[in-house]
């Protein structure tokens, strides 16, 4: 049982929705990034999605692209991202951390080496955008063997025929991408998302969390109301990018978490 499984068991026992926050590792710099991540649990974040910066984030909109560039320019690497997780774990051994990013930095490091280091550092799950089920042998199956959850994205284009394939090697939770598009784009509508979540839940016992296009506490409440939880990324990253101090960003995160938790 990973920290992710434990967290969802706990939420279920309390009949509560999950609030997941995405932040980019090393944005705007290593120190502020660590301060922000450390503050997330107290702001009501149930699961932390930590972005691994990459030069070519093909599924991300401008907000997260620029955040990744800032992090890379500040010297962020995969090694330092793992250090950030290690530093966070010194004070928090229960909040799950999901690393979200693209495959090349992991492939470059070597899959076996990366998995051993990620597990040791305290990472609980992986969302790797450019690894569909067709490439499961690359990282998904080795990750599960190493005791990490591999969280798959399901999307509006994932039809009935394909859904079982997407769910097959997924663990931890299913991340439903609410729109066809990039992060931070068009607003997700609960009325569209609800039936899609139901469609996925009919085929799996895993929790279904919805992300992409959620920016406000009201949207977080509406989406969490039709799913097991909601993810907010770009809106938080944009707050940080506007130059606000970490404390203010965390109070915005708390308003989103309260929104999701009130669902």
């Amino acid at each position: 049982m990973t920290r992710i499984d434990a967290r969802f068991a706990d939420l279920k026992a309390r009949n509560a929705k999950a609030f997941v926050a995405y932040v980019m590792a090393g944005d705007p710099d290593a120190a502020m990034s660590l301060e922000l991540v450390r503050g997330l649990p107290a702001a009501g974040v149930d699961i932390i999605e930590l972005g691994l910066p990459f030069t070519d984030p093909m599924a991300d909109g401008p907000t997260i692209q620029v955040a990744g560039q800032r992090a890379l320019e500040g010297g962020m690497t995969l090694e330092r991202t793992l250090d950030l997780v290690r530093a966070f774990r010194e004070g928090d051994d229960t909040t799950p951390i999901v690393l979200m990013g693209y495959y090349n930095p992991i492939f470059s490091r070597g899959v076996d080496r990366f998995l051993a280091e990620a597990k040791e550092a305290g990472i609980d799950g992986l969302i790797i955008v450019d690894l569909p089920p067709e490439e499961d042998e690359e990282l998904c199956i080795p990750a599960q063997k190493a005791g990490l959850n591999f969280i798959r994205l399901a999307t509006p284009t994932t039809d009935e025929k394909r859904l079982p394939k997407v769910l097959q090697n997924t663990s931890g939770f299913v991340y439903y991408v609410s729109i066809t598009g990039i992060t931070g784009a068009a607003a997700a509508q609960a009325v569209d998302v609800g039936p899609e979540v139901a469609r996925i839940k009919a085929q799996t016992d895993l929790p279904v969390i919805v992300g992409f296009g959620i920016r406000t506490p009201d949207q977080a409440r509406a989406i969490a109301g039709v799913a097991d939880g909601a993810v907010v990324g770009s809106a938080i990253v944009a707050e940080l990018a506007s130059g606000k101090p970490v404390a203010e960003v965390l109070s915005f995160v708390k308003s989103l978490a309260d929104g999701a938790h009130s669902a």
């Binding site: 569909p132 067709e134 999307t155 284009t157 994932t158 039809d159 991408v177």
Partner: peptide
């Protein structure tokens, strides 16, 4: 190979 996001995979 086919290293693309799930949204593009069906296409």
């Amino acid at each position: 190979g086919r290293f693309v996001s799930e949204t593009l995979m069906p296409l």
